[in-house]
């Protein structure tokens, strides 16, 4: 050996080189692991803090209807009901509107208009919820009270048990309207992505058979994308359930177990927002956190379901 050549690395050198090559992978991996840990931490925190409530009432807490901090009586049903009622009504309003927007943007809007319109719809998603709440208190609630509820009550819808005598401005109904506005952007943009992922040859096949654009959209594109649209709705529902400020500011904040949208009510998020910082007794805090745990579990399930469906929608349903 006339020239000096670096010796081949021995066992030690190889290990060191391996580490030099790989430290970055391990370092970023450690932080990624932190994300997993955080989720576990969330569950652990919610569980530990809410344990007194579960040991006091067990799962019965979920169907108890009284909420009386003074006497230490707590039950989650009015809040679960309020959250479900407002979120489902919001979904009922938001889904058709969102699908309409998605169809318009993916099938009809000319390219020059499409991007600005997408931009506007996404701006809607950027408005902070507390600003919607502010608008809800001072603009929407009075309007709903004076002009919308009387009209709905007088229409055939007024015969349903869901719409009784028009009440105050701050009701389940007002909260539902605000929630609908707030979840439209997410449902619309996910639905639009689902529609745009439909293979072009599907639409062309329908058009070549003499379908009008609407028929091609309705019978071929929309049915092909139905899985994606369904998961968009599921994710929108998750968003509505967890929405706090706009709901708190417009729902009326009255512990009231009712099906009547024209009455004040309460939501799971609103009771936490209103009482956690002032809760004095351990059982009061733990009952609020217990509601938070239920909220977390519901939204975790909905989000997981939505994401899993979204992953599967690349293969069309049979």
């Amino acid at each position: 050996m006339s020239r000096s050549v670096a010796p081949l690395p021995g066992r030690d050198g190889r290990a060191r080189r391996h580490l030099r090559q790989r430290w970055f992978r391990y370092a970023t991996g450690a932080l990624a692991l932190l994300v997993v840990v955080v989720v576990l931490l969330i569950v652990q925190q919610l569980w530990v803090q809410s344990r007194p409530t579960w040991s006091e009432w067990g799962l019965g807490f979920l169907v108890r209807t009284t909420w009386n901090p003074v006497q230490g009586e707590f039950g989650a049903l009015p809040f679960i009901a309020g959250t479900l009622l407002t979120s489902l009504m919001a979904l009922l309003i938001a889904v058709p509107i969102s699908i309409g927007i998605a169809i318009l943007l993916s099938e009809y809007a000319p390219r020059r208009l499409r991007d600005p319109l997408i931009f506007v719809v996404e701006l809607l998603a950027a408005v902070p919820s507390v600003v919607f709440g502010l608008w809800g208190i001072f603009v929407l609630a009075p309007l709903v009270q004076q002009h919308v509820m009387p009209v709905v009550a007088a229409s055939p819808l007024g015969l349903l048990p869901f719409f009784g005598e028009p009440g105050p401005g701050y009701t389940l109904f007002t909260a539902s309207l605000i929630l609908a506005v707030m979840i439209i952007p997410i449902i619309a943009s996910l639905s639009r992505e689902a529609l745009m992922a439909v293979p072009r040859d599907q639409k062309e096949a329908a058009l070549a058979l003499g379908a009008t654009r609407w028929e091609a959209t309705r019978h071929v594109v929309l049915t092909y994308a139905r899985g994606g649209i369904f998961s968009a709705a599921v994710l929108g529902l998750g968003r509505a359930l967890g929405e706090t400020m706009a709901t708190t500011m417009t729902i009326g904040n009255r512990v009231n177990l009712t099906l009547d949208y024209f009455q004040s009510g309460y939501s799971m998020t609103a009771i936490i927002a209103n009482e956690l910082r002032e809760a004095a007794s351990e059982i009061h805090v733990s009952s609020l956190v217990a509601i938070g745990l239920v909220l977390f579990l519901i939204s975790f399930l909905l989000n997981s379901l939505g994401r899993l469906l979204l992953m599967r929608t690349h293969t069309p349903g049979t």
């Binding site: 803090q49 939204s299 989000n303």
Partner: peptide
Amino acid sequence: ARFLSEVLAGLPSIVAGIVAYGL
């Protein structure tokens, strides 16, 4: 991490508050 990030992105913001409150 990917799945939990997607799920965390839909976490009700008030739950994040409860966790920070407790911790």
